[in-house]
Amino acid sequence: MSHDLITTPFGFDSTAAEVIAGVDLSGKRAIVTGGASGIGIETARALAGAGAHVTLAVRDTVAGNRVAGEIGGKIDAAPLDLSSPASIAAFVGAWDGPLDILVNNAGVMAIQELTLSATGHEMQFATNHLGHFALTTGLHAALAAAGGARIVSVSSSGHLRSPVIFDDVDFAFREYDPFGAYGQSKTANVLFAVEASTRWADDGITANALMPGGIITALQRHLDPNYGKEAEERFRRAGSRLKSPEQGAATSTLLAASPLLDGVGGRYFEDCHEAPVIHRRDETTIAGVAPYALDPENAARLWDLSVWWIG
């Protein structure tokens, strides 16, 4: 990679409130998918606190409305099931006017048995990538109308577990691996940001991806109850530690709103800085971005296939 890595005054311990301090989002509109739990709540809280009108795009609108009420300000909830093309179409159809910030935050992780979506795709890929792809492309005109819109693609260090296996994304010919499937979907989240920034540059739209850090949230609901302790140990071995949800939302919030990222797109961040490319991982590796996740040919290929897959 030829450019200098972007650094900011923030870091591992920074919170969403700290990175957005002094930023005025009055008059701007934002969507946070999965905004009723985990780091989604804290991302929405930070954006609303800076004056944005925030829509929580959530499967459970009861929870969404409860969170909106707790946060206060200009915030509402709308139903969105990312595994359902009809639900995505309804959400897009109901949106009116420009969209300044789209935080693609929702996700499912490590579903233990191979599960297919209604459209026949592996559920983690269908939800984490294809659902967000359909949502974002559906909202393209709204993003373009905003002038300088930002897309935030919440990925994970899990992307280091697997590239997108283009010839078999749905595990039709290979043994299903819950974390491999998750990793593939998180690589797709990075590739989406790379290609969206390329394709939509003339619309003033930028997209970046990020690793929020290790945070114990409802995302781990498919895993063993001891997963939290194991994750803590894994991060400790890697010379790191887990984050609070407020810290976990910092990098998302930075990419969504900080003037430090004006005009920056197609990159991958962690701990509020652009991550270095790494060319090998071992069992303790939780930092850095894999070259296959930033590869422009992979990004273009995934985009074209995704258009086909979502019909």
Score class of each variant (00 low, 15 high):
Leu261Ile: 13
Phe10Pro: 06
Gly64Asp: 03
Glu70Thr: 12
Gly49Glu: 08
Gly72Ile: 06
Ala57Ser: 09
Gly97Ser: 10
Asp60Asn: 15
Asp295Lys: 00
Phe166Glu: 11
Arg301Asp: 13
Ser244Ala: 11
Gly107Met: 04
Val58Met: 01
Leu210Gly: 03
Leu139Asp: 03
Ile31Asn: 01
Asp100Cys: 03
Gly138Arg: 05
Leu305Gln: 15
Leu102Arg: 00
His3Ile: 05
Gly183Leu: 10
Asp167Asn: 14
Glu18Gly: 08
Arg161Ile: 04
Ala196Pro: 13
Ser83Thr: 15
Asp100Phe: 06
Ala293Tyr: 11
Tyr176Ile: 12
Thr43His: 09
Thr251Arg: 00
Arg29Met: 01
Ile6Trp: 00
Leu80Glu: 04
Arg29Phe: 05
His279Ala: 03
Asp224Arg: 07
Lys243Gln: 13
Phe12Leu: 10
Val67Thr: 13
Val169Ser: 03
Asn189Gly: 12
Tyr176Ala: 12
Arg59Tyr: 08
Trp308Phe: 14
Tyr268Gly: 08
Val194Met: 10
His140Met: 05
Ala63Lys: 15
Leu99Ala: 05
Ala50Gly: 07
Ile6Phe: 03
Pro79Gly: 08
Phe10Val: 03
Pro163Asn: 13
Pro178Phe: 07
Tyr227Thr: 13
Ile6Lys: 01
Val58Gly: 04
Met211Asp: 15
Ile165Cys: 04
Ala250Pro: 11
Phe235Met: 14
Thr136Leu: 09
Ser252His: 07
Leu139Gly: 06
Gly11Ile: 03
Thr206Gly: 09
Val289Trp: 04
Ile151Thr: 07
His159Asp: 13
Val190Lys: 00
Glu270Tyr: 04
Arg267Met: 00
Ala188Phe: 13
Cys272Lys: 00
Ile101Val: 15
Arg29Thr: 15
Gly93Cys: 05
Val92Met: 02
Ala238Gln: 01
Trp308Met: 13
Leu210Arg: 00
Arg221Pro: 02
Glu175Leu: 03
Ile39Asp: 01
Ala201Ser: 15
Pro212Lys: 02
Gly73Thr: 11
Ala57Gly: 14
Phe91Tyr: 12
Thr15His: 08
Ser306His: 12
Ser153Arg: 01
His222Ile: 00
Thr206Glu: 04
Thr127Ser: 12
Lys186Asn: 10
His159Gly: 10
Ser2Trp: 03
Gly148Asp: 10
Leu99Phe: 11
Ala142Gln: 12
Leu223Gln: 14
Gly69Pro: 09
Ala250Ser: 14
Arg161Asp: 13
Glu195Tyr: 07
Ile6Ala: 02
Met123Leu: 14
Leu80Thr: 12
Tyr227Met: 11
Ser258Phe: 02
Tyr182Gln: 09
Leu80Asn: 06
Ala231Lys: 04
Leu5Lys: 05
Arg241Asp: 05
Arg234Leu: 09
Thr206Phe: 09
Arg237Ala: 14
Thr15Lys: 01
Ala30Ser: 09
Gln112Phe: 04
Ala48Asn: 03
Ile165Lys: 14
Phe235His: 06
Ile88Pro: 01
Ala287Pro: 00
Phe192Gly: 10
Pro212Leu: 06
Val277Lys: 00
Ser14Ala: 15
Ala275Val: 05
Leu294His: 09
Leu47Lys: 08
